[in-house]
Nucleic acid binder design. Sequence first.
DNA 1: GCTTAGTTGGTTGTCACAACATACTAATTG
DNA 2: CAATTAGTATGTTGTGACAACCAACTAAGC
Lengths: 400, 400
Amino acid sequence: MKSFDTADHAFIREVNLSSVLRLIHSAAPLSRARLAAETGLNKSTVSSLVEDLLDRSLIHETGINSIGTGRPAMLLEINPQAGGIIGVELGVDFIAIVLTDFVGEILFRKKVIADPAASQMKTLNQSFRLIEETVGVCRAKGYRILGLSFSIPGTVELNEGLLIFAPNLNWHNTPIRKIFSERTGLKVFVENDANAAAIAEHLFGVAQKLNDFIFVFAGVGLGGGLFLNGQLYRGRGGYAGEIGHTSIMAEPFRLPCRCGNLGCWETYANQESIIRRMQARLDEKQDRTLSIASIKQAADGGDQDAIDSISEAGTAMGIGLAGLVNIFNPERVIIGGPISVVGDYLLPFIQKSVNKYSMAEIAVQTEVSISEFGPDASLIGAAAIVVDDILKNPTHIERR
Amino acid sequence: MKSFDTADHAFIREVNLSSVLRLIHSAAPLSRARLAAETGLNKSTVSSLVEDLLDRSLIHETGINSIGTGRPAMLLEINPQAGGIIGVELGVDFIAIVLTDFVGEILFRKKVIADPAASQMKTLNQSFRLIEETVGVCRAKGYRILGLSFSIPGTVELNEGLLIFAPNLNWHNTPIRKIFSERTGLKVFVENDANAAAIAEHLFGVAQKLNDFIFVFAGVGLGGGLFLNGQLYRGRGGYAGEIGHTSIMAEPFRLPCRCGNLGCWETYANQESIIRRMQARLDEKQDRTLSIASIKQAADGGDQDAIDSISEAGTAMGIGLAGLVNIFNPERVIIGGPISVVGDYLLPFIQKSVNKYSMAEIAVQTEVSISEFGPDASLIGAAAIVVDDILKNPTHIERR
DNA sequence: GCTTAGTTGGTTGTCACAACATACTAATTG
DNA sequence: CAATTAGTATGTTGTGACAACCAACTAAGC
């Protein structure tokens, strides 16, 4: 549906408040005078907006800059103590929770095992108890709670905060927001895990100030968080980002994919593919159960089989990414999720095959990075969603 | 670069003028009262905005609706005579020009052969003469000229109206806007051909009111116009949309691609691939020079070889599209460009393989269509760019 | 050390502008 | 005539722009 959104005075104010707040977020510390110069707003307007943001406790005055001639400037920064944010990641066999402040610093975190076979109700209750505990921690610090946010491996409807379908959890049409806002009274956000991770990178990670980048969440499969034209792209029904299901011509064997086809890219480049490659090498020598952690350990110890297994997956990863780079001409591609523990071994091979298989003039414009958040990208991302909402709509937080 | 755009009174006015104008564009005829109801704006505000748009001749009062009780409404529509728009398509071996009115109706068109070996200067002069002729036609009708717009098979920088690189023309860094605005005094727009075609579909074609769709321009290669979140997506340097260069596993043979790799999707699905398939079938029988037009003729005559050649390309097209459908979860995929002359034969095979190879829950949300503009999509698109600019920024047109 | 000029930061008061609320007029049906 | 819907006129409110101002400092000359 096309939008015919209109504007009024309140909208102007919201836009300008957001501009000032986001500028402080990305370039703090800043004086009122610098803000006026950078935004093009009048000095008096900036003063009024800053006062408003101070009233909402979203920023604070943090010191005086007396370098140079003239009156020293009062510097402004984001106020980390604006409030606490609770992020929850619902995994297939775990629930992770984090409490952060308004600048994404972790104040408290906890992770518990969840039984994949347990009922939805049981898992939700388990989450609720974790949330209650975290709320307690937050209140003990004297922070108000700015929001409660869920990162979920599935498709999501944003307006209603509805989980449409999570294949690995086997949950359908779960009204997450309704359930948790009723039980906690908090403002509840729900987002897909790869999208959440992309927001984390945009606000706190290696994609700050970028308009066009792709987050590749590599774990069981390959999920993409597409950040395009300065915003997340979700597609018609929230399914956008299923990047793993194009066939690539990297290797002769073709494995069945969870999507029903053969030879999909993700079967060559996901976490499992590294284990499989290692297994194939070891079969002739010995037999033991492998994990991505144990393979990393072997690689750290100089085991060539481990290093080769990771390298091959990296090459396959890069071949698929090359196609995405051609399609999106992104500023950056970020690899995250469980696979990022072996990121240092993967990266050079990914970069090499991206450069080899994507068009030269596009490849030179693209950087490939490993997420700094490692396996926590989605969890941090849940919290980042709340920060993002406030940066875009500062009036969501009350003046006082 | 991130944007910290600010808002002021003029911005509110622009937003609201645009909202009203776009609503009239998409749902005319409408009364002021309906506009107020649909936009949520106050009745008096709508009256003021409508008067403004009338002053700019962008809309006109077109009749009275006296159905039902109460005072009859004065209906408003887009004014086709708001002005003329000149669209130019620079092809490899032709220059096409079109004059349209403000609702995209063609008032005049012409196409001339261009020598691919000729100097850039010569081709530009040839274009200039065509433009002069078209300006004459427009002036003779008493229309002002709203803009001059170029659709180009290459990469473009929008702010400067600069052609960065067009591989098939072998033009680099050509300042199209500078050249033509100096020589004609008109407002000049420059856009990539696939992007222009996407805009044409959005304003006048089968993508009206859609927020997320993909236009596939199939000719020499496969170019994509990506319309996402209600706007064109161009990527970091304007290169986005190179969709043709992922390898697909459709067929055993692997042909070299213009990008330097082997077995790219576009080598199986572009216009040339149909000719090649037909050639292979005919080699054993006879020898003659083939074109897409002659193959269509054969298919129309019931020639099974021709029909099969097209079908195979359609299947290959669908396999590649399935990957894009998974990535973008679009509302629609539109096939256009030179290949669309055989669109009726292609479409069922494309649809079939899209459904087969993309994820089921995503495939059901996606429609595949052939462009109604056929080979003219990019040319109409050039004109559509100007309409789009005015719909978004009505104040670009003077009050009088 | 004192004075003065110059520079930069930030506030105050006035204005213009756009949307809004309200009350009105206009034109139709029954 | 009442009821209904379309559209206008008037005054209010909220917003940013602008210009003038005050505030706080540095630099330079005596």
